[in-house]
Every structure is written in structure tokens, then in C-alpha cells.
Computed example of a mutant assay.
Amino acid sequence: MATRRIEQSQESRRLIVTAATELFAEKGYRQTSFVDIADKAGISRGSIPWHFGNKLGLLETVLDEQLQAVRSGSHVEHVMDFIRAPASRLFITLIGEAVEAGSPIREHYAQLHAALRQAVLAQVPMAALPAGLDPEAVTVLLVGAVIGVHVQWRVSPEAVDLDAVEATMRALLPLSVD
């Protein structure tokens, strides 16, 4: 019986995270309520604070799961697959909230960007960089470019050919280790 309860709890948690990811991506963090999440997940509203403490705890879990997806690989095709993933829209939707002073998600975005830079830095063979370039500055530029491509594609998918972007990244960035 205890095993069944554990399974139900894990399933409830998974449903909540999936629903919250989709709703945060669609409506933003502030505009999404526990009622919205519970309705979409098909669970009791009281399950959310039981699993996550509060809305920020839920967001932290959502961002951590997405961050794990980012960290799981940093090859060019992985980056492009991540951009195409429906859940990655979350990062675009929430960035406006993250840049506001006092935002409860600002620090989480700072950590996310630091992790992205670290993952990219680990993939850049230092010897391949032209002399005098700061590897950390290169990673800031590369992460910024990927974020920019992502935003452009989400805003105007008909105007951005992700396959062409991937081919161009491969041609311009023989830095990535595939």
C-alpha cells in the first residue's frame, strides 16, 4: 500500500510540474495561479504546496528540470533540439519578469545563465580561439546568440530557418565538440 501511495505522489508531482511548465511558458509566472495549475494537472490545489511549499518552490523545480535538460548536452544539435522543445518557451516568457528589480525569479535566471555559460565554456577548446580572446567573453556572446535565435524563432518562426541556423553555427563555430 505504501508503494502505491509513493507512486501516486510521484505521478501527482509529475503532473503538477508538467502543467506548471506549460502554464508558466504560456502565461508567465505572475499570471499563473495554483488554481490554473491544479485544473490543468487534474489534481487537488492543495497538492501543490504539499509538494513544493509555495509557487516559487514550484517554479524553482520547473527551472531546475529545464536546466538539467540544458546541462545534459551542449553540442550544436542538442542546443537546436532544446530551442525547438515546447517547454523551452518558458525561458522566453519568463525573461521579462526576470529582468525586473526585485523579481522573485531574477536570481534563478542569473543561475541559469551562469550554468549555460559554464556548459558552453566546457565545450570550447581554448586552443581554437583566436589569440587574445577572453574565453568567458566568448561564452557570453555564444549564449546571447542562442537566446537571440530562440527569441526570434518564437516570435517569427516563419522568418527563422532553424536548420540553416544550425548549419551556420557548425560552419562558424568549429569550437563545439561533437
Rank of each mutant, 00 (worst) to 15 (best):
A98W: 15
H150L: 03
L133Q: 07
F91E: 08
A122Q: 00
A127E: 14
E158Q: 00
V76I: 14
S156W: 09
Q66W: 08
I83Q: 01
A119R: 06
L112P: 09
A127G: 05
L112D: 08
A85H: 02
A145F: 14
I92Y: 08
A87H: 06
V146W: 06
R117V: 06
S72H: 04
A87Q: 04
E107L: 12
A119N: 11
E77D: 05
Y109F: 12
L162V: 08
V99K: 15
M126P: 13
A127Q: 04
P104I: 09
V124Q: 07
V120S: 08
E136P: 05
D81T: 03
Q68T: 12
Q111D: 15
D81N: 06
D134V: 05
M126A: 13
D81K: 01
S72D: 00
I105K: 12
S74Y: 07
R106W: 08
A137I: 10
D64F: 15
A159P: 02
W153V: 02
R106Q: 14
F91I: 10
A85L: 05
V124Y: 05
I95Y: 12
E136Y: 05
G144D: 00
D81P: 03
L94K: 02
A110F: 11
Q123E: 14
I147E: 09
I105H: 01
Q66A: 12
T139A: 02
H150W: 02
V99A: 11
Q123A: 07
P125G: 01
Q111M: 15
V70N: 11
S88C: 06
V138R: 04
V160Y: 01
F91K: 00
G148A: 04
A128C: 02
T93M: 13
L121Y: 09
Q66E: 13
Q68H: 15
V138M: 10
T93Y: 06
E77T: 13
R154A: 07
Q68S: 15
A110C: 08
